[in-house]
Design a protein around this nucleic acid. Structure first.
Lengths: 334, 334
DNA sequence: TCTGATATGTCAACCGGTTGTTATATTCTT
DNA sequence: AAGAATATAACAACCGGTTGACATATCAGA
């Protein structure tokens, strides 16, 4: 592969000057600039990012650690993080911690080794000590905010409020919350709080279940859902803490012959693709994932430069209505 | 951050010796080895991968370029690629080309700049010239096999055969194939071939539609599906080229009051999560994504070492039965 | 004509490792 | 006791850029 030296030789300049062109430093005539670029094209030169990062003592890479990749919420998040990073000329090193603390730790070490500019840490495990004394900023998404330099979350409490209010306004009187997105204490737990507060204020009877971490890991909630529906047969509305769970609720209802939305109304959370792919579609609390991802990357880059960034950022959620809380008439084709 | 030099100083050894410990080269006594490791732990030393890669002229990073991240097939693929890479001590640099050739090219350049060990290129655009004269092996997955050093695909033709045979065996007599996974010529097109051959051999009437690239990009096939069902109202079985399309077929049927599977049977492709999340579940042709991802990473690493690897690897597919081609009785809970 | 601004060259140190050579010991074999 | 294997030191070159100091030359403006 062509190196800076080759470019310098071919263009009759010195390495210093060529480097100056590459980094837009000092004085360079348009003529020289053009010539250098021409030679670079000719030699098919690509600067060696390893060398650059080494001498600059920082890379253009952001580490992203998620507990799941196939989970539609994280897939959406990763997709938006990649897009946002791309726009700022950053690359994504992707790690799947599977929610395990030791793997998280290992990945953090790998990020260190690779001298990433920053790490974006999504959901995943509980508080840990390993996030002290890091050499790069740590941005968290939907995780305990005090762990990193900056935390990003959506208004989980308000989401719970919206969900409960919606179910109640649609006539539900025995409602159920299926929480425990991850089986670990999380900011997402505030959804439950919002739900509870609304139920109490309205004097509506409510129940709650918390599936354990095991369910989260393989995203397979059928057993809990079945069991819960049998335990609380009078339930007429369910607020699930993710669309993934909501989709499974709808399936279980279908199997049990419970008609959604006529006999049972369902509200999910996240607003990922699956919410639109079930029959009926899932009414859900939409997280502005794109904006959250953009914020995460922007803050990561800023913090890496040493700029001050807000310690916490909270994004609003909105209710997206679909068939699962409708009146039973067929839905329009979106 | 602590450097090799620091470790050497603290352990009273020379950089050379410490490096030798790190790389398991030359003679090292157990005593020295232990001491070095102890000091490394003490100083919380992490080798600088930038420096390593630079001097070794290669990194432990594999570039992965996909046309979609939120698409469940790619999410599953990425997840398995990451896992396989992790086991071989490699990291994943993730790029989302959105199926655009120019972005693909740009990402290939970024991979060059980062001196990746190899690139795994998934589906995406058509043949391009930019894959000549690369400095690293290029492994393709479900893409034209002649583009890279090695190509991996599933037995697409057989998938089409299985799907058609299954629909016919379940009594369908007017079957339809919705293809064009990407709107571009692809190995996946062989699914159609297999489908056609079986239909012809059995004298079953069949139709085919090819949604354009536009549909693939936003994964929103409703318009084509509606239109097609109106155009061929006697259709009683559909083979969709992905579970994502199949899920939408089921939704459209529900809206139109067509009962699945009683009046219409549906077979998808891929066997991703959504296939199990719809009501009814989707009978589908399963790609062994895990094995394909492992093969891709293994070949990538081997090829990067200069070893010879098979130019093409084809993995078998299997039929997974779910409710969408059943007899209409409720499904068991998986 | 003197002064700056502009434009480039020359040189060398540095980033943090890897690797090869040469030199010295010590210990084990035979 | 000689030779081989083992263990480490001491250097230094190299990977491919970045950056700063200093020198030199041109050209425009005052």
């Amino acid at each position: 592969m062509a190196t800076l030296k080759d470019v310098a030789r071919e263009s009759g300049l010195t390495v210093g000057t060529v480097s100056r062109v590459l980094n837009n430093r000092g004085y360079i005539s348009d003529e020289t600039r053009e010539k250098v670029y021409a030679v670079m094209r000719e030699l098919n030169y690509q600067p060696n990012e390893m060398a650059r990062s080494l001498s600059k003592q920082k890379s253009n890479t952001i580490g992203v650690i998620v507990p799941h990749i196939v989970h539609p919420y994280f897939a959406k998040l990763i997709s938006n993080l990649e897009q946002a990073a791309y726009e700022l000329k950053y690359k994504i090193l992707l790690f799947n911690s599977k929610g395990k603390e030791e793997k998280e730790g290992e990945y953090i070490e790998m990020c260190k080794s690779n001298r990433v500019a920053a790490v974006i840490l999504c959901s995943g495990s509980f508080h840990t000590e390993q996030f002290r004394k890091l050499d790069f900023p740590l941005i968290t998404i939907e995780r305990f905010l005090d762990e990193g330099v900056a935390g990003i979350e959506c208004d989980n409490y308000r989401g719970g409020v919206l969900a409960a209010e919606h179910l109640i306004s649609r006539g539900c009187r025995h409602i159920l919350h299926i929480g425990g997105v991850s089986g670990l204490p999380m900011p997402a737990d505030k959804r439950k709080q919002g739900f509870e507060d609304v139920c109490r204020k309205n004097g509506v009877e409510y129940k709650e279940v918390e599936p354990g971490q095991a369910y989260y890991d393989d995203m397979h909630y059928y057993p809990v859902i079945c069991q819960t529906l049998e335990q609380y047969p009078q339930t007429d509305g369910i607020f699930a803490s993710s669309d993934l769970i909501a989709a499974q609720v709808i399936q279980v209802c279908a199997r049990k012959g419970i008609r959604v939305p006529e006999q049972m109304k369902v509200v999910g959370f996240d607003d990922v693709n699956v919410a639109a792919l079930t029959t009926p579609g899932i009414t859900t609390i939409r997280q502005p994932v794109k904006e959250m991802a953009e914020a995460a990357v922007t803050l990561a880059v800023k913090a890496a430069k040493g700029d001050m960034v807000p310690a916490t950022s909270m994004f609003p959620v909105t209710l997206v209505e679909r068939g699962s809380t409708g009146n039973g008439k067929p839905e329009a084709s979106r």
